[in-house]
Deep mutational scan, measured.
Amino acid sequence: EQYVVVANYQKQESSEISLSVGQVVDIIEKNESGWWFVSTAEEQGWVPATCLEGQ
């Protein structure tokens, strides 16, 4: 499942990744806490779901 990044995010923990507007990410896991585990071409990590929008 692919989502587009709609807000920049700077990682704050080692388990997170930074996002840039316009990036496309694959969703691996959706957590009810509002944090999703995603994959980019370069890395995987947790990001806030509020930064993502379905395609």
Rank of each mutant, 00 (worst) to 15 (best):
N8P: 11
V21H: 05
F37Q: 14
Q12R: 11
T40W: 04
W46K: 06
E32N: 11
E29N: 14
W35E: 08
V25T: 03
V38K: 00
S15F: 06
V4E: 14
S14F: 03
L52Q: 00
K30W: 02
E16F: 01
A41L: 12
L19Q: 01
G34F: 02
V5H: 00
N8V: 05
E43Y: 07
Q12S: 12
K11T: 04
G34C: 03
E29D: 10
G22I: 00
E13P: 02
C51E: 00
S14P: 13
E43W: 05
W46L: 07
V47L: 05
K11S: 11
L19K: 00
I17M: 12
W36K: 01
D26Q: 12
S15T: 10
V5A: 12
Q10C: 09
I28H: 12
A49M: 14
E16T: 08
V47F: 07
V5E: 00
E43H: 13
Y9W: 15
E32S: 11
V4W: 06
S14K: 14
T40E: 05
S14G: 11
V6Q: 07
K30Y: 14
W46P: 00
Q10S: 13
Q10W: 05
G34D: 09
V4S: 15
Q10K: 07
K30A: 08
N31W: 04
N31G: 14
E13N: 12
V6D: 05
C51N: 03
V38Q: 00
W36S: 07
V25G: 01
T50E: 10
W36T: 06
L19T: 02
Y9T: 05
Q23F: 02
F37C: 09
G34K: 08
S20D: 05
G54S: 12
Q55A: 14
E43S: 14
E32P: 11
G45Q: 02
Q12K: 14
Y9L: 03
V24T: 10
E42Y: 08
S33K: 15
W36Y: 10
T40N: 09
P48I: 00
V4H: 05
A41M: 11
L19C: 13
E13G: 11
V6R: 13
S20G: 06
E29K: 14
L19I: 08
Q44D: 09
V25I: 05
E32T: 09
V47I: 15
W36R: 03
Q2H: 08
F37L: 14
S18G: 15
E1V: 12
L19S: 00
L52C: 07
V4A: 12
G34M: 07
N8D: 14
V24E: 14
G22C: 02
I27Q: 02
Q23A: 05
Q55C: 02
V38F: 00
V25W: 00
E43I: 08
Q12Y: 05
G22A: 03
V24G: 08
K11C: 08
G22K: 01
G45V: 02
A49D: 07
C51L: 06
W35D: 08
Q12D: 06
Y9S: 03
A41P: 15
Q55V: 04
K11I: 01
Q55M: 06
Q23H: 09
T50F: 05
G34H: 05
G45F: 01
S33D: 15
S20W: 08
G34A: 07
Q10L: 12
S18Y: 02
S39T: 12
E29G: 07
E13S: 08
G45L: 04
S33G: 11
Q2D: 04
C51F: 07
Y9I: 01
I17K: 02
V6S: 11
I27Y: 08
V25C: 04
E42F: 07
D26V: 08
E53G: 13
Q55G: 07
L19E: 01
W35V: 10
V38W: 00
E13Q: 15
S20K: 11
K30Q: 13
W46Q: 04
Q23N: 12
V21P: 05
K11P: 13
Q10F: 06
N8Q: 10
W46T: 04
E16Y: 01
L19W: 01
Q2P: 11
G45M: 02
E32D: 12
T40P: 02
S39V: 04
V24W: 11
E32M: 07
L52E: 00
Q12H: 10
Q44C: 07
E43N: 14
G22M: 02
V38S: 01
G34I: 03
T40F: 14
A49G: 13
V5Y: 01
E43Q: 15
G22H: 02
Q10D: 06
A41N: 06
V47S: 03
I28C: 09
A49Y: 06
K11G: 13
G45S: 00
I17V: 12
F37I: 08
Y9A: 01
T50G: 13
V21R: 13
W46E: 01
E43K: 08
V6A: 15
Q10H: 09
G34E: 09
I17A: 07
G45Y: 01
V6C: 08
A7W: 05
S18L: 06
D26T: 10
Q12E: 07
Q23D: 13
E53Y: 06
I17Q: 02
C51S: 07
Q2V: 14
A49C: 14
K11F: 02
A41Q: 09
D26H: 07
E32I: 11
Q2G: 11
Q55H: 13
K30L: 03
E53H: 09
A7S: 12
A49S: 12
W36G: 01
Q44I: 07
V24L: 09
S15R: 14
Y3C: 04
D26M: 09
V21I: 08
Q2S: 12
K30F: 04
D26S: 10
N31K: 13
Y9K: 02
T40H: 08
V6W: 05
G45K: 03
E29W: 10
L19P: 01
Q12V: 14
V6Y: 06
D26W: 06
G54T: 11
V47M: 03
G34V: 02
W35Y: 07
V5G: 04
E32Q: 13
K11Y: 03
T40I: 10
S39H: 08
W35K: 10
N31H: 10
S33W: 04
S39P: 01
V25H: 02
Q23V: 05
S39E: 14
E16G: 15
S20L: 14
V4P: 04
Q44R: 13
Q2M: 15
G54V: 14
F37K: 15
K11H: 15
E1D: 10
C51K: 06
I17H: 02
T40K: 12
T40S: 14
E1R: 03
E13F: 07
S18F: 08
V47T: 03
A41C: 10
G45C: 01
W36P: 01
K30R: 12
C51D: 02
S39M: 13
G45E: 00
A49T: 07
I27V: 15
W35G: 04
I27G: 04
I28N: 07
V38P: 00
V24Q: 07
L52M: 08
N31P: 07
F37W: 08
Y9G: 01
N8A: 15
V25N: 00
C51P: 00
S18C: 15
V47R: 02
S15D: 14
L52N: 00
V38Y: 00
V21W: 03
G45P: 00
V47G: 03
V24A: 13
S20V: 11
T40C: 07
N31S: 13
Y3I: 08
Q12C: 07
A41E: 15
V4C: 13
E29L: 09
V25S: 00
E42S: 15
Y3T: 12
E53F: 05
A7M: 08
S14I: 14
W36D: 04
E43R: 10
A41S: 14
P48A: 02
I17R: 05
I27E: 00
Q44F: 07
A41D: 06
Y3D: 08
